[in-house]
Design a protein around this nucleic acid. Structure first.
Lengths: 214, 214
DNA sequence: GTCTATATTTCGATAGAC
DNA sequence: GTCTATCGAAATATAGAC
């Protein structure tokens, strides 16, 4: 295994070891769960990718489901943080435009987490149903009220805020969840920096025109 | 009248039995694969839902993967058929509007198939990669040319046809793939006929306004 | 064609030495 | 905290009587 472990002058503290191992396990788990699904993922595969014996996974995370739950929670919190651009905006151009930018960036930087979330919801959200019924529902209702406020102020056309939100979620996350299909249709190559910029601009343009904000 | 003539008439023919059993297996498999993923699905569960012994599944479909492949092919062909509304249309309002209607209807009538497709693509399309590189790529290029033609004729704004298609796919399939999330945000109840109509109208309105066709 | 019983493999989880 | 060895459960797939 790591021969260079001998080289390190100072022995890492136990808390550091724990933190680093948990991070390695979570990163590996996110990728494996995304690529194989919960049922297709194996603890052995995650352990190999994390560079640890399988038994160590069970030392840090009691069960496969515990590990999975942590992975799902991560992407959910990242998305919630990204929505802050929504709130302080004076109108839909800044608010929705900023939200699209943030969600598209996350689709590029966290494609695995997005896929795990999509898979979880597609299978009926057996693990995070409570989040849907509390945090997500509250968040959604708050943003619907905000969009309705913009409509009342005449800053955008009267569209159904709920279906607008669904379109934003669907479109931005599509670039992560269906990234493989998009890559295949891009001659098999991942989108370049330029192509990601064009994608963001296209989505913002279509949405902001669609709601009559520009 | 010969006695065996009676029996022959009453007893279903072998080809009928085969057809009915294959249909029952495929329907059950579509649902189980959608709800559990390929890895989480078990032949036992599919057999129970189809009302057949597990061994019979292996009689009709040699392996679990053979059965899965058939399920994925089904939804793909349904989507291709739905795209015919695209071609004979005089302009984007009829063409894209009709396509959205058709895709939304399929999301409602075939949610399981849509989820199986999404799961397959999210996991890197291990089974249907060849479809992506041939049929889907050709279909996409053809529709991009058609949309570009409408743009050249001044029937819609100059938007990137590729990202427009991605938005259509993402948004329409979202109502199937994330149907559970949508239902949770709808007080736990499935969308009513009226709500489905509103969803279709909202999507069409947002898209057709976004491209400047209405 | 159908179905019971079983072979074979693999996975999640754990015991126990270090 | 780490890691080898292994248990028990569950899965795919098949054998063989009917």
């Amino acid at each position: 295994m790591p021969a260079d472990a001998q080289i390190t002058r100072l022995k890492p503290r136990r808390t550091d070891i724990r933190r680093e191992n948990e991070r390695a396990i979570l990163d590996a788990a996110e990728k494996v769960f995304a690529e194989a699904g919960f049922g297709g993922a194996t603890m052995q595969l995650i352990a190999d990718m994390a560079g640890l014996p399988k038994a160590n996974l069970h030392y840090y995370f009691a069960t496969k489901e515990d590990l999975y739950r942590k992975v799902v929670q991560q992407i959910f919190e990242i998305w919630l943080d990204a929505a802050s651009s929504f709130d302080d905006a004076p109108g839909p151009v800044e608010g929705l435009g900023g939200y699209i930018d943030a969600k598209m960036d996350i689709s590029r930087t966290h494609p695995y987490g997005s896929k795990v979330w999509a898979s979880e919801v597609m299978h009926g959200a057996p693990v995070i149903q409570d989040y849907l019924e509390t945090t997500l529902r509250d968040w959604t209702n708050g943003r619907i009220a905000l969009i309705q406020h913009w409509i009342n102020e005449g800053k955008m056309r009267p569209v159904d805020p709920r279906h607008l939100l669904y379109m934003l979620w669907a479109t931005t996350q599509h670039y992560a969840d269906f990234g493989h299909q998009i890559q295949t249709l891009n001659s098999g190559k991942p989108l370049s920096d330029r192509q990601w910029s064009e994608a963001k601009a296209s989505v913002k343009d279509l949405v902001l025109r669609g709601i009559g904000a520009i």
